[in-house]
Amino acid sequence: MSIDHHPSEERLLDYVSGGLGESWSLAVATHLALCPKCRNTVARLEAMGGGMMDAAEPATLADNSFDALWARLESEEDEADSMPAIAGHAGKIDLPEPLRSYVGGSVDALPWQNMGLGVRQLLIPTADQSTARLLCVAAGRPVPEHTHRGEEVTLVLQGAFRDSTGIYAAGDFQEADETVLHQPHAEKDRDCICLAVTDAPLKFRNLAFRLVQPFIGI
């Protein structure tokens, strides 16, 4: 897999510091599973965070802080330290962790919601205010042309799409905002499956699509 499009360094910094919301972190972390280069950047940033923490002036802890902790560990020891065995991977696996834990199963088994125009989606439950969804765009079909009211990131998982800014294949991470008008097209040979995160509804050029938008939740 050769990845040409990566998250910005600022986004990786927010991921490492913990400032990035869950939906966006899901997209970044799933990219990291596929991208040794960005993992390397993240490892350095974590080393930086660790260095900062380690260089902090020691604060005074509450009285008996260690003893209280130790008592707690002893009382919980039984349920404690054995790690659950890694679940056997039954069946076909075609989505990487941590995404798979959120949607479960392989692509074919997902409860897709048909949106018409060759697009299917699956909303992914996350605890932040943003929206994460899987999109499946049929081979050769376009996503209706749109701009963005906020930010949008798209991580390609299968197939590829193309828009005015380039070609995005499996592992590629696209970042778009208010300034970007685009019409992504799935490449012809294969359906394109993406993880898309947005913080506000998209703005479609096409009036017909704008009319149905409230009903399909995109």
């Binding site: 799933t30 596929l34 040794p36 890694i86 075609d94 941590p98 798979r100």
Partner: peptide, 27 residues
């Protein structure tokens, strides 16, 4: 500590890649 702080302040998970996942692309 960072993950626990995210959980404490925002009640969110902080997704991370899994080195043991068959789809994980090694270095």
């Amino acid at each position: 500590g960072r993950n626990l702080r995210v959980d404490f302040l925002r009640k969110e998970k902080r997704p991370q890649p899994d080195f043991n996942d068959p789809m994980f692309v090694p270095d």
